[in-house]
């Protein structure tokens, strides 16, 4: 896990910074340099909503090495309230309580650590809204 890669992705992983094509209105997350629809390169920065709904999910039971301690854990596709969709871990949720249509909010969490001596990678996960 390279520190430079983590550093490059800080705007989207920490602050949910996306961009939008002024011609088509399409939101891209992670941000794109060129809109694939109209080939527009003047994309506008937008900050995504921090609440949304689970559109689909799966449960990872055989996890990649950095995540074996967390298995089984859910990963979902979340439609945010501004229409953008993202894939992320669903934290703070028991597997039996997961439902399509479940309301979630974004929380800042540790995503993974590079062994015992490497860097920590932080970013967004979603958690069920119970308030």
């Amino acid at each position: 896990m390279f520190p430079a890669r983590i550093w490059r992705e800080i705007p989207q992983r920490y602050r949910l910074e996306a961009n939008r094509c002024p011609q088509t209105g399409e939101i891209y997350f992670p941000p794109r340099l060129v809109c694939p629809e109209g080939k527009c390169v003047e994309l506008e920065p937008v900050k995504l909503a921090e609440t949304g709904t689970v559109e689909s999910f799966t449960v990872i039971r055989v996890a990649p090495s950095a995540f074996t301690d967390e298995a089984p854990y859910p990963v979902g596709i979340v439609k945010l309230d501004d229409g953008a969709k993202m894939m992320c871990q669903i934290a703070d949720a028991q597997i039996e309580e997961l439902k399509i249509g479940m309301k979630v909010k974004i929380e800042f969490r540790k995503i993974q650590s590079d062994g015992k001596a490497g860097v920590h990678a932080y970013g967004y996960k979603c958690v069920p809204v119970r308030d």
């Binding site: 967390e70 934290a91 929380e107 800042f108 969490r109 540790k110 995503i111 920590h120 932080y122 996960k125």
Partner: peptide, 16 residues
């Protein structure tokens, strides 16, 4: 705290 929560993540949420 769960394994994905630490001083940094809790500080961000409290600050939000």
């Amino acid at each position: 705290p769960q394994p994905d929560q630490d001083t940094i993540t809790m500080s961000v949420e409290a600050t939000k």
